[in-house]
Amino acid sequence: MKSPIAIRRGAVAAVFIDLQEEHRQDQRYLVDGYEKILANVQRLQAAARASGVPLHHWAYIVDLGAQDRPFHPVEADGKSAFSDKDDPLTAICHEVAPADGEALRIKAEASAFRSGPAAGELKARGIEWLVVAGVWTEACIDATVRDAVASGFRVLLVKDACGSGSAAMHQTAILNLANRLYGGAVTDTDGACRLLSGESVTVWQVEGSVPLRFTYENAARLYAEL
């Protein structure tokens, strides 16, 4: 269902997940429509900074020498097939990189909140809402959102500031999250920027049990209607 919400100043933080160069330069790991996603993220970041909303950035880095991953895909030289610690393409894209005073956290797993102090630190600062954007939707975004909800945060999922390897992968991942986004909401970049600036905005919120019964035929339409 759609209903109006507003987010209290001082109770919101913006979270940006894995917006790294490999997703536009590494042919094995390209994100569909990545330039548009980065442009939307830029708008979100500008809105957050203008309203004094704290920004938190994460990058996914694989260090097989320090992590126990027996089934992880590797190249012939033994390095990770993606996001290897020595690959310069793991750098955050310059146009959405942390500004002065904004920390970049490194994570070694899909979720930003599965381990480490981030969730507790945000809670201690009185954060109730997390505005979430980044890639890949069905992987690191999904894991981060689910752990954030389990930790007691309300998540504002910005659907057109997230992405994956294809439109179908992204759209069905958003629909799956929307079906169980208890306490949170789904909107687009326009709506998120308005909420960050203190406006009331009509957004999609889950009601009942798994209301979005999508099929191959109607998934794109349901996604567009969120």
Rank of each mutant, 00 (worst) to 15 (best):
Ala39Phe: 02
Leu64Gln: 13
Arg9Leu: 05
Arg8Gln: 15
Gly52Lys: 10
Val53Ala: 04
Glu21Val: 11
Arg8Val: 14
His56Gly: 04
Ile37Leu: 15
Asn40Gly: 14
Ala66Asp: 04
Pro4His: 03
Leu30Pro: 01
Ser51Lys: 09
Lys36Leu: 13
Asp68Met: 07
Leu64Pro: 09
Arg8Leu: 11
Glu21Ile: 06
Gln67Tyr: 07
Asn40Ser: 10
Arg24Phe: 07
Gly10Phe: 06
Ala39Thr: 11
Gly33Phe: 03
Tyr34Ile: 15
Trp58Gly: 08
Arg9His: 09
Ile7Arg: 06
Val53Phe: 04
Asp63Met: 08
Ala50Pro: 04
Gln25Pro: 02
Leu64Gly: 12
Leu55Asp: 03
His56Glu: 15
His23Arg: 03
Arg43Tyr: 07
Gln45Asn: 12
Leu30His: 04
Ala14Tyr: 01
Asn40Ile: 05
Pro4Tyr: 05
Val31Pro: 02
Arg9Asn: 09
Arg43Leu: 10
Val15Gln: 03
Arg9Trp: 00
Glu21Gly: 05
Gln67Cys: 07
Gln20Arg: 06
Val31Glu: 02
Asp32Thr: 11
Lys36Ile: 10
Leu38Asn: 00
Ile7Met: 13
Gly52Met: 08
Leu55Ala: 10
His57Gln: 08
Ser51Glu: 09
His23Pro: 00
Gly10Gln: 07
Val41Gln: 01
Pro4Arg: 02
Ala13Ile: 06
Tyr34Thr: 06
Tyr29Asn: 15
Asp18Arg: 09
Tyr60Asn: 09
Val31Asn: 07
Ala11Phe: 00
Arg43Asp: 09
Tyr29Phe: 15
Phe16Asp: 03
Asp32Trp: 14
Ser51Arg: 13
Ile37Cys: 09
Ile17Tyr: 03
Val41Asp: 01
Arg8Asp: 13
Arg49Asp: 00
Leu38Val: 12
Asp32Arg: 14
Arg49Glu: 00
Ala66His: 11
Gln42Phe: 05
Glu22Cys: 10
Phe16Trp: 07
Lys36Gln: 13
Arg8Glu: 14
Ser51Phe: 04
Val15Tyr: 01
Ile5Ser: 02
Asp26Gln: 08
Tyr34Gln: 11
Gln25Ile: 13
Ala46Glu: 15
Gln20Trp: 03
Leu64Ser: 14
Leu38Trp: 00
Val62Cys: 06
Leu38Asp: 01
Asp63Cys: 09
Gln67Trp: 07
Gln67Arg: 14
Asp18Trp: 10
Tyr60Ile: 02
Leu38Gln: 02
Asn40Pro: 11
Gln20Pro: 08
Trp58Tyr: 15
Gly33Leu: 02
Arg49Trp: 02
Ile61Ser: 03
Gly52Leu: 07
Pro54Leu: 05
Phe16Met: 08
Asp26Ser: 07
Ala50Lys: 14
Ala11Pro: 01
Leu64Met: 13
Ser51Met: 08
Arg49Lys: 06
Ile7Glu: 05
Asp63Gly: 08
Lys36Pro: 00
Leu44Gly: 03
Leu44Tyr: 06
Gln25Thr: 13
Ile7Asp: 05
Glu22Lys: 08
Ile37Gln: 12
Leu44Phe: 08
Leu38Tyr: 00
Tyr29Lys: 10
Asp63Thr: 11
Gln67Asp: 12
Gln42Arg: 12
Ile61Asp: 02
Leu38Gly: 00
Val62Asn: 03
Arg9Phe: 02
Asp63Ile: 12
Ala11Trp: 00
Ala14Glu: 03
Lys36His: 13
Ala50Thr: 07
Asp63Val: 10
Tyr60Ala: 04
Ala48Lys: 00
